[in-house]
Amino acid sequence: MQALRTAAPLLQLSVQFASGTHRSALPRHKLQRWVRAALRCGPANARLRKAKPAPIEPARITLRFVDAAEGRELNRTYRGKDYATNVLTFDYQPWPPAADIVLCDAVIAREATEQGKDLAAHYAHMVVHGVLHAMGWGHELEADAERMEATERALLLTLGIADPYA
């Protein structure tokens, strides 16, 4: 499946390193590239996706990199799950997206090691995944999961990153 394309909005990106464990591996230009690539996929809602031209209002995305303690606390508070997870998305509007995306460095590093993936490639996948969630993409239903995963595969391929689900 080919990644969807839409007129991407301007980007207002904030990057916060509450945990600086991988800060040197995550330069701003890479983070911007990954976020912009996901934005070009557009919102999950077809009506919003067909809107042309690109919205005048910028996408407002905050990427916050946290340690396991903060990741666990946020997951417990907002999802009722008492463990740190790789990425949490707090979405406020789907298009142009406004969201806080929290990435837990300890979980992402552990997953990359366990799955034999390059750390930066796994971060790219998690950033893309979080931005897609911010635009209404989901994976609760099997059909939605298949659509989201196919979109992630195609999008990551354009970034030179192998299929994260292989």
Score class of each variant (00 low, 15 high):
residue 120 A to G: 10
residue 129 H to Y: 11
residue 128 V to S: 11
residue 61 I to C: 02
residue 13 L to T: 07
residue 76 R to L: 06
residue 25 A to R: 14
residue 75 N to D: 06
residue 59 A to Y: 01
residue 82 D to P: 09
residue 42 G to Q: 10
residue 16 Q to H: 07
residue 159 L to C: 11
residue 3 A to S: 12
residue 103 L to S: 03
residue 33 R to K: 12
residue 16 Q to R: 13
residue 152 E to C: 01
residue 92 Y to H: 12
residue 112 A to T: 12
residue 62 T to K: 07
residue 48 L to Q: 03
residue 155 L to R: 01
residue 28 R to H: 14
residue 80 G to R: 10
residue 118 D to M: 05
residue 146 E to Q: 15
residue 84 A to H: 06
residue 12 Q to D: 15
residue 155 L to W: 00
residue 164 P to L: 01
residue 46 A to N: 08
residue 107 V to G: 04
residue 116 G to S: 13
residue 113 T to H: 14
residue 62 T to S: 09
residue 50 K to V: 05
residue 45 N to M: 05
residue 144 D to H: 15
residue 153 R to V: 02
residue 14 S to K: 12
residue 85 T to E: 11
residue 133 H to T: 05
residue 118 D to L: 04
residue 113 T to M: 14
residue 118 D to P: 00
residue 124 A to G: 09
residue 158 T to R: 08
residue 53 P to D: 08
residue 130 G to Y: 10
residue 56 I to S: 04
residue 69 A to D: 15
residue 101 I to A: 05
residue 138 G to S: 15
residue 1 M to N: 08
residue 71 G to H: 05
residue 33 R to W: 07
residue 55 P to V: 01
residue 17 F to L: 08
residue 93 Q to L: 05
residue 54 A to L: 09
residue 130 G to L: 11
residue 20 G to S: 06
residue 98 A to M: 06
residue 87 V to S: 10
residue 8 A to K: 09
residue 8 A to Y: 08
residue 117 K to M: 13
residue 47 R to A: 14
residue 150 A to K: 14
residue 53 P to A: 06
residue 157 L to E: 12
residue 146 E to D: 15
residue 48 L to A: 10
residue 51 A to F: 03
residue 132 L to T: 00
residue 140 E to C: 07
residue 156 L to G: 00
residue 147 R to Y: 03
residue 96 P to D: 01
residue 157 L to N: 11
residue 45 N to K: 00
residue 105 D to W: 02
residue 135 M to S: 14
residue 112 A to V: 13
residue 102 V to M: 01
residue 108 I to F: 04
residue 147 R to K: 13
residue 28 R to L: 10
residue 47 R to G: 07
residue 18 A to Y: 07
residue 79 R to N: 13
residue 98 A to V: 10
residue 44 A to C: 11
residue 89 T to A: 12
residue 144 D to F: 10
residue 47 R to Y: 05
residue 50 K to A: 15
residue 145 A to F: 08
residue 151 T to E: 15
residue 83 Y to W: 08
residue 162 A to Q: 09
residue 52 K to S: 12
residue 126 M to L: 07
residue 103 L to T: 05
residue 54 A to H: 02
residue 101 I to K: 02
residue 133 H to R: 02
residue 40 R to C: 03
residue 122 H to I: 00
residue 42 G to F: 12
residue 144 D to P: 07
residue 64 R to D: 06
residue 42 G to R: 02
residue 47 R to K: 11
residue 37 A to P: 06
residue 100 D to W: 02
residue 153 R to H: 04
residue 117 K to R: 15
residue 137 W to K: 00
residue 33 R to M: 13
residue 133 H to F: 09
residue 139 H to A: 13
residue 150 A to M: 12
residue 155 L to Y: 01
residue 139 H to N: 14
